[in-house]
Design a protein around this nucleic acid. Structure first.
Length: 500
RNA sequence: GCGGGCGUAGCUCAAUUGGUAGAGUACCACCUUGCCAAGGUGGAUGUUGACGGUUCGAAUCCGUUCGCCCGCUCCA
């Protein structure tokens, strides 16, 4: 099967036309970074979440579930580092309209014999010290100053004083006066709990589901009959006030995560566990219909790791707009439990019966965005092909995640006995599966309508069903081939394909 | 946040120098139809993204704003 990725506009178009995804608050002109899932979208999305939960919780011995509240005690986010670190200090150049991260913009005063000549600025990279020194010498030469240049000491722009800011040149123009003071931009959505809106009532919508797991670690250990190593899984909404949401549902301000915190002994080989989780996640993507050929791994370089991470590997997917992160698999060490233990004064550790030791477990965190999986599935499944000279749009979604598992049709609408039998079959099937019924228009048209929304099987009640007791025809969305089978066999047939 | 492009029916698009907003397709009903977007008849559909201005008159001109796409920037 081809592994080409569908163009973004075709996917967008289908999503809107067929009711998968709408712009949020559409009637008011939309709200940037938010999306609503329509009748078909909610089915696909629920199926993704259900498949994930089944595979990682129900069908695993070592993982239990959790559903924590979206708003946690604000101390949670102080301890996790989000209040201080989940923030970008931004600096704008009024002249060039360029924007910089203040902590990546470095500057230094240029002094000769105690006299301030001016300032130099450089963007963060390996050679920035050399560049800054060169610029300082250049300034000294241009001003024709005699004397010894004092050492060039770089600081980042977050440390610039109010007096210094107007003197630091913009890296874009080389002239001072155009840089704004750094403005701190925390990406957590703030709200207030209770009637009073003062500093003591500030709370945050969670920017990740992970912390809800860590702050429940003790509860789960005390009640869940779990034994190390074990995982806690959670599916839920997270919120980030992204500066610039892009690429449809890929980066939105409200999104859904499926996360596991997998706790291991500090003496265990975390790198082996990390690798095992990467394999487990890759296998899961393949099982729901995302081909390995479109997936790749990206290991974060050591110097770019987040404050909590010992190692992070992303599973990347070939999206229509480029290869981008689908899932992050981070080794967080004992950072989070240690932080919450210190901040709360609670013991968040594990007593190992075998060694009679008490320790804070380390953790491997596979974290995947539901909306990104949704988009990856659509990009993989979307195809345009030709059937007998006619163009056909088809979503080749695996039966397990497809919104409808089958559609039931009477061959003709004006033959009451066909309609009655088809309706009865539909009623029987829908007790187990989400199944669509359609009698409007020619049979070919009805097949095509289902092709476009990814329904894997078209079940038709015809005259042989009634007269010869020959069963129904089951038409395959991808091969277009028809098989005839009894209604009992059809139930088994669907069960195998949907539930594996 | 900056620059560029774009917003007309569910979708794809028309609409002359400013002069009654239309077509195809999809949709709904009925008829027809013995398996891959057939045909017939009838029907519904728009504050032309929103707000304001100019004008006798605005989809069209001007301003503001919102949203989408592309490129920067950003994305612990």
């Amino acid at each position: 099967m081809a592994t080409s990725t569908a163009p973004m506009d075709a996917i967008l178009n289908l999503c809107k036309r067929r009711g998968f995804v709408f712009a949020s608050s559409d009637i008011y002109g939309g709200l940037n970074g938010f999306f609503d899932y329509g009748p078909l979208g909610v089915e696909l999305k629920n199926n993704i979440k259900q498949a994930w939960w089944q595979d990682f919780v129900h069908r695993a011995d070592d993982i239990v579930g959790l559903d924590s509240s979206i708003i946690h005690h604000p101390a949670t986010w102080k301890a996790s580092g989000h209040v201080d670190n989940f923030t970008d200090p931004l600096v704008d150049c009024r002249e060039s309209k360029m924007r910089y991260r203040a902590d990546q913009l470095h500057f230094a005063p240029v002094r000769v014999a105690g006299d301030l000549l001016g300032y130099v600025s450089v963007l963060e990279d390996e050679g920035m010290q050399a560049k800054a020194e060169e610029a300082a010498h250049e300034m000294k030469r241009k001003l024709a100053r005699q004397g010894t240049l004092e050492p060039v000491v770089l600081r980042d722009f977050t440390q610039a004083t109010a007096e210094e800011i107007p003197l630091v040149p913009s890296p874009a123009t080389g002239k001072p006066g155009s840089l704004t003071p750094p403005r701190s931009f925390n990406m957590m959505f703030q709200t207030h709990v209770g009637a009073l809106q003062d500093a003591s009532s500030v709370a945050y919508l969670r920017p990740e589901t992970a912390q809800g797991i860590f702050i429940n670690f003790k509860n789960v250990v005390d009640t869940g009959r779990v034994r190390l190593p074990f995982g806690i899984a959670q599916v839920g909404k997270a919120f980030r006030n992204e500066i610039n949401p892009r690429n449809f549902i890929f980066r939105s301000r409200e999104f859904e995560q499926m996360e596991i915190e997998y706790f291991i002994s500090p003496s265990a080989d975390w790198q082996a566990s990390h690798r095992a989780w990467i394999e487990r996640c890759l296998a899961w993507f393949e099982s729901i219909g995302i081909p390995r050929a479109k997936l790749s791994l990206h290991e974060h370089p050591r110097e770019k790791l987040s404050h909590y991470s010992k190692g992070t590997t992303d599973i990347m997917f070939e999206f229509p707009f480029g290869v981008q992160e689908l899932q992050g698999i981070a080794a967080r060490g004992d950072f989070d439990l240690t932080q919450h233990s210190a901040a709360s004064g609670q013991r968040l550790d594990w007593f190992d019966e075998a060694s009679k030791e008490r320790y804070i477990p380390h953790v491997i965190e596979p974290s995947v965005g539901v909306d990104r999986v949704f988009l990856a599935l659509l990009a993989t499944a979307y195809h345009e092909d030709e059937v007998e000279g006619e163009k056909r749009t088809v979503l080749r979604l695996p039966a397990r995640v497809a919104p409808y598992k089958a559609a039931v049709f009477p061959l003709l609408k004006n033959k009451p006995e066909l309609v009655e039998r088809a309706r009865a079959l539909h009623a029987r099937l829908r007790r187990r599966f989400n199944v669509f019924y359609d009698e409007a228009g020619a049979i070919g048209r009805r097949y095509r309508r289902q092709d476009e929304i990814g329904t894997p099987f078209g079940v038709t009640v015809d005259f042989d069903t009634l007269e010869k007791g020959a069963g129904v025809t089951v038409r395959d969305r991808d091969t277009l081939e028809q098989a005839r089978m009894s209604e009992d066999d059809l139930v088994r047939f669907l069960d195998e394909r949907v539930n594996g």
